[in-house]
Amino acid sequence: MFRLPMRFRMLSMLAAMLLLAGCASTRVTNHWRDPQFAGPPPQRVLVVGISESESGRRVFEDSFVNTLLAAGTPARASYPQLPQTGAIPKAQLVEAIRASQSQAVLVTRLLKTERQVDVIPGAPMPVMGGFYGWYGSAWATMPPTITQYDVVTLETTLWDVKAEKAIWSGQSEGFAPTDIAKFSTGLAQQLIKQMQQDGVLASQ
């Protein structure tokens, strides 16, 4: 029986790994800044993650708070005052904002999760040594490589507390995380950098 040479099976597996690696990082796909926002950037930010998972929300909010602090903007997570999952009553949210003395609220929510399927088509095997090699390879084809992964799309909005209006909003996407802390930190770094460039957060 003609078998696929090991080196070609390894190349096929490597191609699949590269596809997954290309989807592993987060990226900002689009963003908007209120053209009427004249500043100054908020002095303090309250971070709110919308999630059905309490532990996931805590990790997410902590990642954003730590990244904001490192970028020079004082910030506080909402979960110590608002530990419940699900929709938060307005009165509790108002009190949390007042207690944190925040001028802005940064809210992130999941918009969608999509299953992606990538297929690397099979290809004829290269000819191996004369007629007999060619005849064997004529019956053999490198099998297609199929990879499946989930891509998440998130929406992040920075709200001005006093005006009660959005001053910045952006969408981002990335490979569905297995390490929430690493994913959240990478996402926060990209979003905060973009908000600094857009002038809605202070730059160091």
Rank of each mutant, 00 (worst) to 15 (best):
M1N: 07
R3E: 12
M6T: 13
R7L: 09
L11W: 02
A15M: 11
M17L: 15
L20Q: 14
C23R: 10
S25R: 15
W32I: 05
Q36T: 14
A38L: 13
A38P: 12
G39F: 08
P42C: 02
Q43P: 02
V47K: 04
G49P: 02
G56P: 05
G56F: 01
R58Y: 04
E61N: 11
E61L: 08
F64W: 13
G72I: 04
T73L: 08
R76S: 09
A77P: 07
L82M: 04
P83H: 08
Q84E: 13
T85W: 02
A87M: 05
Q92L: 08
L93K: 00
Q101E: 14
Q103A: 12
A104I: 03
E114R: 12
Q116A: 06
M125C: 06
P126Y: 00
G129V: 05
G130Q: 11
W134P: 03
Y135M: 15
A138W: 05
A138M: 15
A140T: 14
T141R: 10
P144W: 05
T145M: 11
Y149N: 09
T153N: 05
W159F: 11
V161A: 02
A166R: 10
I167F: 10
G170N: 07
G170V: 04
S172D: 11
S172E: 13
I180V: 15
F183T: 01
L191H: 08
Q197W: 00
A202W: 06
S203T: 14
Q204P: 15
